[in-house]
Measured scan of single mutants.
Amino acid sequence: VTTYKLVINGKTLKGETTTKAVDAETAEKAFKQYANDNGVDGVWTYDDATKTFTVTE
């Protein structure tokens, strides 16, 4: 299990959150659900070296 980070650069929501997941794909699903629940819809990137997803509106 690895800790992944999400950086949110939204129009109305900015911040960070983390999740523990077995792989990046599982973390991405959780983060996309989180973003959707919070009304954030943007461009996604992922940096494997830092295990960090970024979504920018």
Rank of each mutant, 00 (worst) to 15 (best):
G42F: 02
L6P: 00
K32A: 06
Q33C: 04
G15R: 09
L6G: 01
K14M: 13
L6M: 07
A27I: 01
V7N: 05
N36W: 09
N9W: 08
K20C: 05
G15M: 13
Y46R: 02
T12Y: 15
G42K: 01
K11C: 06
D23L: 09
V7T: 10
T52H: 03
T18I: 08
F31I: 02
T50G: 06
Q33E: 11
K14G: 07
Y46F: 09
A24K: 15
Y34N: 02
A21S: 05
N36P: 01
T52S: 04
K5G: 03
E16D: 06
Y46G: 00
Y34W: 07
E28M: 11
T12W: 10
A30W: 14
T26V: 08
D23H: 06
Y46D: 00
Y4W: 09
E57G: 03
E57N: 03
Y46S: 01
T50D: 07
Y46T: 01
T17P: 03
A35Q: 02
T12G: 11
K29C: 03
Q33F: 06
Y34I: 14
D37S: 07
G15V: 15
K20L: 13
Y46N: 01
E57W: 12
T2C: 05
E57D: 09
Y46M: 02
T56N: 09
D23C: 03
D37C: 05
Y34P: 00
G10P: 03
D47L: 04
G42D: 02
K51L: 08
D37H: 10
A35K: 01
Q33W: 08
V1R: 11
E25K: 15
V7H: 06
K20G: 15
V40G: 02
N9F: 09
A24Y: 10
N36L: 13
T56K: 07
K11L: 13
V55G: 00
L13K: 04
K11E: 14
Q33M: 09
Y4R: 00
A24P: 11
A49L: 11
E16F: 06
T50V: 05
A35N: 04
E25Y: 11
V1P: 06
G10E: 03
A27F: 01
A27M: 01
T2K: 07
F53S: 00
I8Q: 02
T17G: 07
D48A: 08
T18D: 09
Y34R: 03
E28Q: 14
T12V: 15
T3P: 05
K51E: 04
K11G: 13
K20I: 14
T45V: 08
V55D: 00
T12S: 11
W44Q: 01
D47V: 11
T12E: 15
A27E: 00
A30V: 12
T54H: 06
Y34F: 11
G15D: 15
T54A: 05
D47W: 04
T56C: 04
G15K: 15
L6Y: 01
D37P: 02
V43C: 05
T56S: 11
T3G: 05
G39V: 04
T19E: 08
T3K: 11
T18E: 10
T2L: 08
W44R: 00
D47K: 04
G42I: 01
T17F: 15
Y4P: 00
W44N: 00
G15I: 15
T52M: 05
A30K: 09
E28R: 12
A30Q: 13
D37A: 07
G10L: 15
V55R: 01
V55Q: 01
V43E: 13
E16V: 05
N36A: 14
K51C: 04
I8H: 03
G10C: 05
V1H: 12
K51G: 05
N36Y: 12
V43S: 15
Q33I: 10
A35C: 05
Y4D: 00
L6A: 03
T12F: 15
T18Q: 12
N38W: 10
F31V: 02
I8C: 05
I8A: 03
T45H: 08
K32Y: 06
A27T: 01
V22M: 10
K32Q: 09
N36F: 12
A30H: 15
F53Q: 00
G10T: 15
